[in-house]
Design a protein around this nucleic acid. Structure first.
Lengths: 251, 251
DNA sequence: GAAAACACTATGCACTGCATGGAGTAAAAA
DNA sequence: TTTTTACTCCATGCAGTGCATAGTGTTTTC
């Protein structure tokens, strides 16, 4: 009956706090003009712990309780620092995305794109769970924005026509992510063993004996490209060359 | 002490059963030379139900109990039909991937690639959760293999040099998936409301007032490309043109 | 000094995949 | 035909999840 006279505390309070946490190393202050007891944990340490867990055991192993346990605390401690699980993952994502330093090659567009793509590739290889996170043109955090800005600067410098840029951006990110994903899965194979993969292939051929005739091109593809798992970086640079060639051709 | 004299029932029994389920419409029989009571459910109906749930509520909402509830049964019923949750998702993935019919345009490589990419794009748009599933060159099931074979046939017909094919395949799949992912997220925005997205952007600018100076290129990008959310198909065809141009250039 | 705002803990709820054991059924083996 | 065996389906239970809630104690502000 009697409605609580809540002062409607700005509907985007959570969003605001999250943005301030995202940009905490770029000029904002984390939302704690605090009145209660001192915080015993640190946001960056929490994120590093979460990233370490994700690197070692996968994104699914990241839970509030698992992180808090490494500090000897209860699972609910995490929430004052991050707000929600989804926010925690977004913060981890940006934290793991810090852009390294390198000089843009000024030899060719292809070389500049290769340098950018390889740098991003290394980040994704170091944190394979990043491929499980959504990606969008819209900025999530400062580190992701750094990557996008850097890429656009390259395209601008080499006078790629503006109409072709969004397409190029999409293809670049998509290719790096896909290449890193397969490279990471090959890397994981060494641990678990390739046996299961071969088992499935053999079982398929056993049940569908005429598989090579049904799929003459795709069944013959894999043994022909051992450089795939050997050197995914070569595949990536090949992609960049292809894309640069397309950009030079299309006006 | 006394070890059971189990006859070691072939270690890859699960793998074998899974493969037979994957190819059940292509010549294999589902692994039930059955002795017990009749099965009351049907594998294809189970997969359709799972796909319907994933389409409507996301992949996370797919659970054995949720599917079984739609048949008025307990959650454990699902396991005799699919083996495990991961197998269930793999079967759903291939089931949702059925390749439609279309004629390869013989006008140009770009047109043929566009037709392939658009067809795959529509499948991904109809089932956006497919982007959350892993993808690899290696065959998972018959429908996925159909797509790969079709693409390789196009590349073969237009005499794309074999050395460039793996790279092209990767870029094509990656681009279609990425484009579909952003298109699907824009589509979902209409329901939930774009408000939250704008809120975050505004909050960022409020806390980082000099954001446009820090990121002159990337902050100016979004309003310049409204065709992105309006017409992602145009973006996709643009990508295909770019890639075809690159393939023509690189020998 | 009083009071509000905070960090942290404990508990509980609804949910997950799936191991387990049991009941009943149909086909194969005797 | 009888017995055995393999099967489906159900109920329960376990360990795990995110997080709402309530309570306790600490710190800052009025």
């Amino acid at each position: 009956m009697s409605v609580e006279p809540e002062p409607e505390p700005e509907p985007d309070q959570d969003v605001d706090a999250h943005v301030r946490r995202l940009w905490r190393h770029r000029g904002t202050t984390v939302p704690t003009p605090r009145r209660g007891p001192r915080q015993q944990l640190d946001l960056d340490e929490i994120l590093q712990t979460g990233i370490a867990i994700a690197d070692a055991e996968g994104l699914a192993a990241v839970s509030t309780r698992a992180i808090a346990a490494r500090f000897g605390k209860s699972g609910m401690v995490i929430y004052p620092y991050v707000g929600s699980k989804e926010n925690l993952l977004a913060l981890m994502q940006d934290h793991a995305c810090a852009m390294p330093q390198w000089d843009d090659p000024d030899t060719s567009l292809a070389d500049a794109l290769q340098a950018w793509a390889l740098a991003l590739f290394e980040v994704y290889l170091a944190h394979p769970w990043l491929t499980e996170r959504p990606w969008s043109h819209a900025s999530q955090g400062p580190n992701e924005q750094d990557w996008l800005e850097r890429l656009l600067r390259i395209l601008d410098h080499w006078k790629v026509p503006p109409s072709a840029r969004p397409v190029a951006v999409t293809m670049l990110y998509a290719t790096v992510r896909a290449t890193a994903e397969t490279a990471a899965s090959y890397q994981r194979m060494d641990r678990q063993g390739i046996a299961q993969w071969r088992d499935r292939a053999h079982a398929t051929v056993r049940h569908i004996p005429d598989l090579p005739e049904r799929y003459p091109l795709s069944t013959g593809l894999e043994p022909l490209t051992p450089q795939w798992q050997d050197n995914p970086r070569a595949a990536l640079t090949g992609s960049m060359r292809l894309l640069a060639a397309g950009l030079r051709g299309a006006g």
